[in-house]
Design a protein around this nucleic acid. Sequence first.
RNA 1: UGGCGCGUGGCUCAACGGUAGAGCACCUGACUCUGGAUCAGGGGGUUAUAGGUUCGAAUCCUAUCGCGCCAGCCA
Length: 564
Amino acid sequence: MSEPNAEPNTPAAEHRDFIRDIVSADIAAGRISAPVTRFPPEPNGYLHIGHAKSICLNFGIAAEFGGHCNLRFDDTNPMKEEQEYIDSIQADVRWLGFDWVDNLFHASDYFEQLYAWAVDLIRRGLAFVDDLTADEIRETRGTLTEPGTNSPFRDRSVEDNLDLFARMRAGEFPNGSRVLRAKIDMAAPNINLRDPVLYRIVHATHPRTGDAWCIYPTYDYAHGQSDAIEGVTHSICTLEFDVHRPLYDWLIEHLPVPHVPHQYEFARLSLTYTVLSKRFLLRLVNDGRVRGWDDPRMPTISGLRRRGFPAEGIRDFATEVGVAKADSTHEMALLEHWVRDVLNRTSVRRFGVLNPLRVVVTNFPDDLAETMEVVNNPEDPDAGERPVTFTRELWIERDDFMEVPAPKFFRLSPGREVRLRNAYFITCDEVVKDAEGNVVELRCTYDPATRGGDSPDGRRPKATLHWVSAAHAVPAEIRLYDYLFTRPDPGAGGRDLLDDLNPESETIVHGFVEPSLADARPGETVQFERLGYFCADPDTRPGALVFNRTLTLKDTWAKVQARG
RNA sequence: UGGCGCGUGGCUCAACGGUAGAGCACCUGACUCUGGAUCAGGGGGUUAUAGGUUCGAAUCCUAUCGCGCCAGCCA
């Protein structure tokens, strides 16, 4: 696998969007000298392609405008968060090609400061400890059309609030018995302003702070203040947080924070034929529907990596999808386009046969093995050449033969001549079948004058097939992947997502690959000529190769077939 | 229903008051030892709708319609 000095390839001058426009304007107006952004994952799952968009956006803007981007874990809910996720997130961000240098932070780094500011709010009469239960809070919050009502504890004295809040921290109360709420406006049309909860009691061990705390700040309270502490200038999040912005601003305004950050919202990424929901992906993992978070069918960064999608292709995709505020679902074909674009340039070509059919070249000497030098990558002269050996018995792709050729099928069939890539022209003379009538072998003759693949008389077969010498071929398990779902819009119309899962998203075949692949290392990406891009899977063991099909090549024959 | 946000070719985005463009997808042709890649070309939009402002509107205003988000002590 090659992952050269991956540099974010977003040409600022070419890919503008409303957020970059805002950053430019802020710099031009002298409001900031350089942007500070942050990527703030909650460590409660693995990162997916949607996060990649956010990562590229935040790190990309920082790089383009000479600022920096922090990696900050939003670890305010110990009930859901785990160290495994913290580790995977860091690995994935790095793999994508981004570097937070020494700007690695956690919301939990600020728990003490956050607590002090909460006390501050209480002192100024802007927050109170509420004894209402969660249900009672919900019932008094009002509805979309009706205002809520004040909690009976809303007018507690500052002293009582201070005492109660301290005792909350001290662990005197059970989960859910009390919360700290901001005192804003129970009649606000924006429900997020109806005395939102700032702290809740959670007796749980935190991955980083252990048992030091039993009260934890909510997202709304922790996020903006963390931004302020870190000097974040542009706090970029997804659309569903836009209704939280008034609260974000309220807290910044009423707290003695050292800096005033601003929140901007953009549309999260959606993709056809998959689902970007940590909750659902977790379910697939837990139910054993996939091989894990890094299953090659998963839209997770680790899944895409295992599948063979290069980081550069994912980055290119992220810059091409743009950034806007309209809800949008991109076609998977766009991601695939940018992945193929990279793979075509960087992958060495190899021969692999997925569904082998034996070919005996009857007029080729039994004891001869001819070796030819074959170009590794026509797109990259520096990739060099490799030896490929031709013998009397070969494997070709079963799909490359039709006893009764269909219209527009111009590969091998009885009496027809085709080229074996980089080797010889062969003509099919005889079809050997078993008792059930299945084709088990083709008996062909080759033209010695076509060695290397060219005919001195100018004959040009309409088809060129890939092949491997049966005597030299190395067996391999090959996992063919297709979309995770059968529909571009899984779950649409209220259907159960599980009902839309593609039962054929993974198909395992046993084929042969050329001997140069015998020592393929996990992660190594190659193109099997005419078939597609493949990547050696981590399940590969010495003597037991496993390849994942990353993507097929664009296939116009498949298109012709599909039309009928 | 209250608040907020959004509506430009199949998909995504650009055009930021001057008369609609790009990438992907699709189609055609050229080239080719991968039915790949590459190259050339093509079809496709009365800018959700209706009014208004303006010499001029996708851009500004109003209304309507449609879609999304918000009533977790999740983020």
